[in-house]
Computed example of a mutant assay.
Amino acid sequence: MIALFDTHLHLVDRERIHYPWLKDVPALDRDWTLADYQSTARRIGIEGALHMEVDCDPADIAKENAWVADMMAQDGSLIRGAISSARPEDDGFEAFPDTLDRSVVKGIRRVLHVVPDEVSTSNRFRANVGRMGAHGLPFDICMLARQLDLAAALVDACPDTTFVMDHCGVPDIAAGAFDDWAAAVSRLAERPNVNAKISGITAYAAPDWTLDSLRPYAEHVIGCFGWDRVVWGSDSPVCTLNSSLDQWVAVTRALLSEVSETEARALASGNARRIWGL
């Protein structure tokens, strides 16, 4: 069995860190612990993980990264680093990368579907994301399918930065939306500094989803980006809105069972280790 590296794990500690958005998603509004995740992950062949920021209160960004460092230091921890929250739209952001513990923080993300589209098109935002290339910090693109052309414009403004498109570009699988999303993914994939994350797309499917209902979306992304520019992520616990972690892993293994071992290992872990320098 090929081991998986999880590039998209969310953990939650509500006593330590404030997450304003959680109150609007009751199914997720609880603590999600490393111990619980590892109990399942080890059983289903997950060998390591990057903690993905959980859109905490901006005042708690450093606190969240410090918490990840604490978890990394635990005996037998699967956590290999953090993708930090960031606010590239803020005045003074130029100093932010120098505040990061680079033994912990491997990349950054700004959730962009919760703010006006104009945030990602501002000169300040683009200049600051463009500087991430020199710092060796990949930027995760967290945008909806309708925003993928905005993502392409951001990438074009930042040619020296490595990007990772989260969640297959967030297709509306439940509604059967495919053509417009697929065309936008194809356009974004033309940029060689963009990678794609096959992560937790059960959350965007109908409750009665099957492998066959998810397959066209995952296969289209892989076909556009190629096996050398795709990584895997659980998006746990968001994936639990419509599945379980082990069900999403089962989908992944079913898809990988049909490809070569070289291709499977690239998506499962190899590309992630290269992109984030793990």
Rank of each mutant, 00 (worst) to 15 (best):
V114S: 14
A62C: 00
D140L: 03
D179W: 09
L148Q: 04
K63M: 08
F178H: 10
R187G: 11
V68K: 08
M71D: 12
R110Q: 12
I83M: 05
E64P: 12
S77M: 02
M143K: 11
A152F: 10
G130I: 06
D60Y: 14
V111W: 02
A69I: 07
A66R: 14
A95I: 02
M143W: 04
V105G: 02
D180P: 00
W67T: 07
R124L: 12
L78V: 05
V111K: 06
L112R: 04
F93A: 01
R124W: 03
S77E: 01
A95P: 02
G133M: 03
N65G: 11
A174Y: 10
A134H: 11
S120K: 09
A73M: 11
A152L: 11
S122M: 03
S85I: 03
A62P: 03
P171G: 01
H51I: 12
A69S: 14
P97M: 10
A157H: 10
M132W: 05
D90E: 08
P116C: 15
A145W: 07
P58N: 15
K106M: 09
R187E: 12
D98Q: 13
H135E: 15
S77A: 08
V104W: 04
M132F: 02
R187Q: 13
V54N: 07
S77G: 05
V129W: 00
S77T: 09
S120P: 12
D117I: 01
N128I: 04
A157P: 05
L100D: 09
A73N: 15
A182R: 05
M52Q: 05
D75R: 09
C158Q: 03
D180W: 05
N128M: 00
A73S: 14
I83C: 01
A153N: 07
V114N: 14
H51G: 01
A49V: 10
A127D: 13
D149I: 02
D60C: 13
F96G: 00
A182H: 03
L137M: 14
G76N: 09
R80L: 10
F178W: 12
D91V: 13
S85P: 00
R131L: 08
M52P: 01
A157T: 10
L154S: 06
E89Q: 10
A183K: 15
V185D: 03
H167D: 12
T162V: 10
A49C: 15
T121M: 11
S122K: 08
H113K: 01
D98C: 02
E118W: 05
S186V: 06
D160N: 08
A151T: 10
D55N: 13
